[in-house]
């Protein structure tokens, strides 16, 4: 009897071996062809991508007292942007010229907080998943220009003129590409005072605040003029 069990045991092992071996043999023979899924429509940045990210901080923001001595204002907010929507340049010296943002920039710009060295609160990036920060954000090492520019800086959006009715929720007066996460600029101690939202705990911003300028969602809208009502 004992012998039968031993035989069964080894034959099971043997069968298992054959199965495993076969599987690995056949998968080794598989051609390296990768099937490409049927062409999908382009992966657009959905307009509300990231609107909810960072919302877990909303409640915390609500409890945060206003630190009026260290508030930013809208004017300075636009100072280091070439136009409304341009990536801001870095207004402070950087620690490490070479490293990826994931090890330097994000230390402060992921969650924010007070930085005593600069006597300011670190603004929070709306896109922490993009870590080659210096691809778009550069430092300022001189005030001088190579040649004067005649570029016209467009008036940026201002506050107080975006309501349809007295008391109605203001529309979003700027484009949101690359800054779909509303709370990163509109809440917390680093938010410019004028645009700091009174109700950061409400996550679904676009429920009430709609885009004044439709983000482009298809080619049609890219190429045709938006018309007024």
């Amino acid at each position: 009897m004992k012998r039968i069990w031993i035989i069964i045991f080894f034959s099971v092992l043997f069968v298992a071996f054959i199965i495993v071996w076969n599987k690995s043999y056949w998968s080794g023979l598989e051609e390296s062809y990768v099937s490409v899924e049927k062409e999908k429509p382009h992966s657009y940045l959905p307009i509300d991508r990231g609107v909810f990210s960072g919302s877990e901080r909303g409640l915390r923001y609500e409890e945060m007292p206003y630190d009026e001595a260290h508030q930013r204002s809208l004017e300075t907010y636009y100072d280091n942007r070439a136009y409304d929507g341009a990536p801001p340049s870095i207004p402070h010296p950087v620690k490490e010229e070479r490293s990826m943002g994931s090890v330097t920039c994000l230390q402060c710009h992921k969650s924010g907080g007070f930085v005593s060295k600069f006597d300011a609160y670190a603004p929070i990036t709306p896109h922490p998943e993009m870590i080659n920060c210096r691809q778009c954000h550069v430092t300022k090492n001189t005030e001088a220009l190579f040649v004067k520019t005649e570029f016209i800086k467009k008036e940026h959006a201002s506050v107080g003129n975006n309501n349809a009715l007295p008391g109605s929720p203001p529309v979003v007066p700027h484009h949101i590409q690359m800054r779909e996460n509303c709370l990163s600029c509109h809440a917390g101690p680093a938010a410019p005072a004028e645009i700091r939202v009174t109700h950061p705990q409400r996550e679904n911003c676009m429920q009430c605040h709609v885009l004044k300028m439709q983000e482009v969602t298809d080619r049609e809208m890219n190429t045709t003029k938006f018309s007024l009502p």
Partner: peptide, 12 residues
């Protein structure tokens, strides 16, 4: 690019 203020000021 040197005539773009942001870029020149970053890398003069």
């Amino acid at each position: 690019t040197r005539r773009i203020p942001v870029l020149h000021q970053a890398m003069p």
